[in-house]
Design a protein around this nucleic acid. Structure first.
Length: 425
RNA sequence: GGAGAGGUGGCUGAGUGGUUGAAAGCGGCUCCCUGCUAAGGAGUUACAGGAGGUAACUUUUGUCGAGGGUUCGAAUCCCUCCCUCUCCGCCA
């Protein structure tokens, strides 16, 4: 959520900043509403002050005269009643305005960082670095072919259970998933992250707090009988974990690693990535999350990205680091670095982690503050996958495939997986 | 899901319509005395928002689970909801 005061006092700069996203954001109507609200705020404050004084006076007089029905007292009461009516009228107006303002501001995305490359869409993203040697050979198997041949997972039969875009992992596939989850959790928690295992059902307020609502209600699954949704990412419950808190500044930065299943409707992506593990309605993810002192979040962003990268390096998976351009930034993010892993079968890099600095955008929506320099200040929140498990599995299968048809397990993972190779059974 | 009990400041806990943001205690902070891994005495100590000031600060509003209502005035009365605890049921 953007700062209401900023919208009130400097609407032009707000519009300019937002327009870096490559779209026009027109906020003059919100600006007017905030001005009106401010006027009413002041009015209410004055009336309340008067009315409060009057009530005290009445109290004093009654206790002095022991008569609460004298003409003078009744006169004062009458006056108080007038205050009450006036105040409630103004409050009603204020309520309506506040609701309108919130509804509108909630739909505005975060400001892009000045450091983010300016651009319209994906094609303007900037590659920052490459790591590892992409496997380039002909006749490579896709991970779904490997998965079927090696009996690692089954998508077809799973449509009976749910529908398309779900998968059932089997045997070594299930084992590999489990190994990856433990591997990643161990590395991060040994690196100063506190492990969290949050619920996957989250309420509307939690989704609003991290920016998925109100604009993206189409992208999450909703429970019909309760105010609960299937969480699209652990970022949602972890942000909500500290909602309405004033965090002890001594605890900063707070670093969490949260494992959870994630659920996405993938509306609008019909026909894309229909095979394999790349785009599922349900997938597992190990998420990194920081609550940071605002003055340190740029540094934190580098660190969280490096922590995510370290997993790819330990697994010896070729990847590149991409600076997301202003037009391609997510709703809540001001700057995002994507990690894209090499998938040999399609000879391209695919997103496996997205590391974002949301500045105070989510903290403001969720009211998460800390007393910094004697003032309650909204914290900065950062999140990054560390990593998406399904896509990591796909990358391991494709990059590790050997000419004899087996798959080599990265050395670092062997203690978790329990074997050096996946072979035909 | 049923029945009951409860939700007050950092904590414990009083407070059933009136100068109550809230007694008392604990804890915290400051000072004094004493002197040594401690005790005693005095004082002080909620939080959040707005406005004004470079600032120390001043001023104002709100807050006793949340939201409504009654009233000139609500921690206190009424309604709705949420949460916690105990018992029963159900269940992993």
């Amino acid at each position: 959520m953007l700062d209401q005061k900023l919208i009130r006092e400097n609407p032009t700069s707000v519009e300019e900043n937002l327009s870096l996203r490559g779209k026009i954001f027109e906020i003059s109507h919100i600006h007017e509403l905030t001005i009106k609200k401010k006027e009413i705020d002041i009015e209410i404050s004055c009336l309340q002050s008067e009315s409060k004084k009057l009530s005290k006076l009445i109290g004093m007089q009654i206790s002095k005269s022991h008569d609460n029905n004298s003409p003078e007292i009744n006169n004062l009461k009458k006056k108080g009643n007038e205050y009450r009516i006036k105040i409630s009228e103004f409050e009603e107006k204020k309520r309506i305005l506040e609701k309108q303002i919130h509804n509108e501001i909630d739909k505005l995305p975060n400001f892009p960082s000045k450091d983010a490359p300016i651009g319209k869409d994906e094609s303007d993203n900037v590659q920052i670095k490459k790591w590892g040697n992409p496997l380039k050979k002909n006749n490579l198997e896709s991970h779904w072919e490997l998965g079927e041949r090696l009996n690692l997972f089954d998508s077809i039969k799973t449509t009976k259970i749910s529908k398309s875009r779900f998968v059932t992992l089997k045997g070594n596939g299930a084992r590999l998933e489990r190994a990856l989850i433990n591997f990643m959790l161990d590395i991060h928690s040994n690196n100063g992250y506190l492990e969290l295992m949050p619920p996957v059902l989250v309420n509307s307020e939690s989704l609003r707090g991290s920016g998925q609502l109100p604009k993206f209600s189409n992208e999450s699954f909703k429970c019909s009988n309760d105010d609960l949704w299937l969480s699209p990412t652990a970022e949602v419950p972890v942000t909500a974990f500290h909602r309405n808190e004033i965090v002890d500044p001594k605890l900063l930065p707070i670093k969490y690693v949260a494992y959870s299943s994630c659920f996405r409707r993938e509306a609008g992506s019909y026909g894309k990535d229909t095979k394999g593990l790349i785009r599922l309605h349900q997938f597992n993810k190990v998420e990194l999350y920081w609550f940071s002192d605002p003055s340190k979040s740029l540094e934190a962003h580098k660190k969280i990205t490096a922590d995510a990268e370290s997993i790819l390096q330990k697994l010896d998976l070729p990847y590149r680091l991409v600076d997301i351009c202003t037009g391609d930034l997510g709703f809540s993010s001001s700057r995002t670095f994507d990690l894209e892993v090499w998938l040999p079968s399609s000879q391209c890099y695919r997103e496996i982690s997205s590391c974002s600095n949301c500045l105070d955008f989510q903290a403001r929506r969720s009211s998460i503050r800390s007393k910094i320099d004697k003032k309650n200040t909204y914290l900065h929140t950062l999140n990054g996958s560390g990593l998406a498990i399904g896509r990591t599995m796909a990358a391991i299968l494709e990059n590790g495939q050997l000419s004899d048809g087996s798959v080599k397990i990265p050395d670092a993972l062997v203690p978790y997986f329990g074997s050096n190779f996946i072979k035909t059974t």
